[in-house]
């Protein structure tokens, strides 16, 4: 009896699984909002395939998922430029054939010059295609600035002491400070760390505080007549402030705004590279990319963002020279260690 039931079950599951195997499956690993189900359905219908979307919410989880089984679990995924070097070095991604992604031709010039975007090419081969980005400009109170600030240096300006909101992050703060001191944002020389640290202590002494959550920044902005804010969450944060009734402007400082840029890449374990390339090409259609902007408030690579002009300098994130060193120093800076303490070391 049991044996019969088992056989029946086996036969049934075989029968049920057959049609699923007959249709090819594309496995997409993406961030929330990058592959909404209605847009996925259109792709499925057009290519007569099944698309399996998995979501991630942090870079660490993304690394974990792609690294498992040498990338055989997914066909195509989205990661930012600072992360992409890791995947290329680990040989988890394959070079892309741009002929399979003709929609790249309609991308803004900034995204067509792939060699100029750090981290997505190596030895002339392209490993990732930009999809969406968010830059970290400055939000300022129009009432307190007669003319918009032009540089990140405004955060250090004693005229705005106690009215500046900076973001609680080690990496970006070191990058900005290094940039302002004339250095490279992502590569701080050993002997430069003292100066940059000193500069960040100066920032600490000038700001009201370092915020973490976008809602928190809105609350602080309103309650403490904040004049200037480092917009870690970019356009989404600007919208949040405006929705809360703040009369604020947004600028890309002249030394450039740091920006993360999420790109599609194809894993070494991809079953059908052509299909994966079709997926990337599909997301670069005007409708699909447009929906991303409309729904998530994130800039796409086809339409010019109203917040960033072509001339604005955007600095795509790159891996920093020593994230651990920056983090350790930052935790001491934000904890309020006096400058003498750093010298003592």
């Amino acid at each position: 009896m049991l044996r019969l039931a088992c056989r029946l079950f086996a036969a049934l599951s075989l029968a049920l699984s057959l049609p699923a195997h007959a249709v090819e499956t594309l496995r997409v690993l993406a961030w929330p909002g990058y592959a909404d189900s209605d847009l996925v359905k259109v792709f499925e219908a057009r290519f007569d395939v099944h698309v399996e979307v998995s979501l991630v919410s942090s870079d660490d989880v993304l690394r974990e998922k792609i690294s498992a089984h040498q990338g055989k679990d997914f066909d195509v995924f989205a990661a930012n430029t600072a992360e992409m070097q890791h995947y290329i070095s680990q040989q988890l991604v394959v070079p892309l054939r741009l002929s399979g992604i003709p929609n790249t031709a309609y991308q803004l010039p900034r995204f067509r010059d792939l060699q100029a975007i750090p981290g997505i090419t190596r030895q002339g081969q392209v490993f990732a295609i930009p999809y969406t980005f968010s830059e970290m400009g400055l939000i300022y109170d129009r009432k307190q600035f007669r003319t918009p600030p032009t540089s990140m240096a405004a955060m250090w300006d004693p005229r705005y002491k106690g009215r500046v909101l900076a973001f609680d992050t080690s990496s970006h703060n070191f990058s900005i400070a290094s940039l302002l001191l004339g250095g490279s944002p992502f590569l701080i020389e050993g002997q430069q760390f003292g100066r940059v640290t000193e500069h960040l202590i100066a920032l600490r002494r000038n700001v009201l505080t370092f915020y973490t959550l976008p809602e928190e920044s809105v609350r602080l902005f309103r309650e403490h007549s904040v004049a200037l804010l480092f917009a870690n969450y970019g356009s989404q944060q600007l919208k949040l402030l405006r929705d809360a009734g703040a009369d604020v402007g947004y600028v890309i400082p002249r030394e450039g705004a740091l920006a993360w840029l999420d790109c599609w890449a194809i894993t070494r374990g991809a079953k059908n590279q052509r299909l994966a390339e079709s997926w990337i090409n599909y997301t670069l259609e005007a409708d699909v990319s447009g929906e991303l902007t409309r729904r998530q408030g994130l800039a796409n690579t086809l339409e010019a963002s109203p917040l960033t002009g072509d001339a604005d300098k955007i600095i795509w994130l790159k891996p920093v020279e020593n994230a651990q060193r920056r983090a350790t120093l930052w935790s001491r800076i934000i904890s309020g260690d006096q400058p003498e303490k750093f010298l003592a070391r």
Partner: peptide
Amino acid sequence: AANLQEKAHYP
């Protein structure tokens, strides 16, 4: 005293 910290930026 040397290990005391500056906390003005905390809410």
